[in-house]
């Protein structure tokens, strides 16, 4: 049977779109020349934070609104989502940043020392004050991508099929040839193992120049991220960036001084000028792209709206452009 839709790109955007369409009964091909999810995909290097309120401090309201449904969507599609919220801290000198953050993230509440200690004892050792956003969640992006890929194949999505039916282009930065206003925003990240540190939920360290987030993975492994530099490099981490991430982690807790460095990751996030994604209809192709630093947060909403458009002819409530 021929496919109704062929999705180009097997990163978080392509797979989420495939999952959404497939779960509604559509026949799907996914084409990614690199095969299964891996280092070639920008989303491989993601933090996996489902944190709309934290992002809302600097992102547009639509990002917050559309991101709210992300955790439930990932759970529904089989991902192991941890719903333990986000903790936010700042070093002694940067307490003003904590006040600003609290003002701009209404969902954040201040923790007293006892609460902070019971939530994250190792963090509370070093931090005199902290904020907490209870409703947020996180997942392991690599496991989530690989499991979704496996599940889709099991559900009949064809990863070897020909290019047929309506083309949905989810190639991220590789689609720049067709989307001239798409740019790359470089991000560098580290993966470390730190047996002396523990963390149950993502932690954000506010800093005027070296903001850091730490996302816990299994087995005392932590993802430290991420720089945000206005260039499109995808394969070159600099010593300065790595040093800044390490310094920030070490300042947060000296236990990181003895952490084992497992990985230095780098890629460029696909972004439009307003750093919000788009569903763009051009000629006979539909592009879903521009997830910027919100791949796992916004791919579900983008996929849902793309599927509504393709299957029901319903125009997306945001981020839609018809260039035909």
């Amino acid at each position: 049977m021929t496919a109704q839709f062929t999705i180009l790109g097997g990163g978080v955007c392509g797979l989420a779109t495939a999952a959404e369409l497939s779960s509604r009964g559509a026949r799907i091909n996914v084409i990614d020349p690199k095969g299964a999810p891996g280092r070639h995909a920008c989303s491989w290097w993601a933090g996996g934070m489902l944190a709309p309120d934290c992002e809302g401090v600097s992102a547009e309201p639509a990002v917050v609104k559309q991101g709210r449904r992300a955790a439930r969507w990932w759970e529904k599609h089989g991902a192991n989502v941890t719903r333990k919220g986000t903790m936010i801290v700042a070093l002694g000198r940067d307490q003003a940043d904590l006040a600003t953050f609290a003002r701009r993230a209404p969902a954040a509440r201040k923790l007293d020392k006892d609460e902070a200690t019971s939530l994250e004892p190792r963090v509370a050792e070093k931090m005199s004050s902290a904020l907490f956003i209870e409703e947020e969640a996180h997942l392991d992006p690599r496991t989530a991508l690989l499991e979704l890929h496996t599940k889709l194949a099991r559900d009949g999505v064809n990863f070897d099929g020909p290019l047929e039916g309506q083309i949905v282009d989810c190639r991220g930065l590789s689609a720049r040839d067709a989307l001239p206003d798409l740019r790359g925003v470089k991000g560098e990240m580290l993966v470390v193992r730190c047996p002396d540190f523990s963390l149950s939920r993502p932690l954000r360290l506010l800093h005027p120049r070296f903001p850091l987030y730490i996302v816990p993975r299994a087995d005392n492994v932590f993802m430290l991220g991420a720089t945000q530099i206005e260039n499109g490099e995808r394969d070159r981490a600099t010593l300065r960036s790595v040093m800044e991430l390490m310094n920030a982690a070490y300042a947060l807790h000296p236990a990181f001084g003895e952490a084992e460095l497992l990985e230095v990751g780098v890629d460029a996030r696909p972004a439009f000028p307003d750093n919000q994604p788009r569903i763009r209809h051009m000629d006979d192709r539909i592009f879903a792209n521009g997830l910027f630093r919100h791949g796992f947060l916004l791919a579900p909403a983008l996929a849902r709206m793309t599927a509504d458009l393709l299957l029901d002819g319903k125009e997306p409530e945001v981020w839609y452009e018809d260039h035909r």
Binding site: R183, G184, K186, I229, E230, N231, G232, E233, R236, R240
Partner: peptide, 13 residues
Amino acid sequence: RREAGQDTAGQDF
């Protein structure tokens, strides 16, 4: 300085 990268990768911005 930092945006240039290699081969002036900052051109888009």
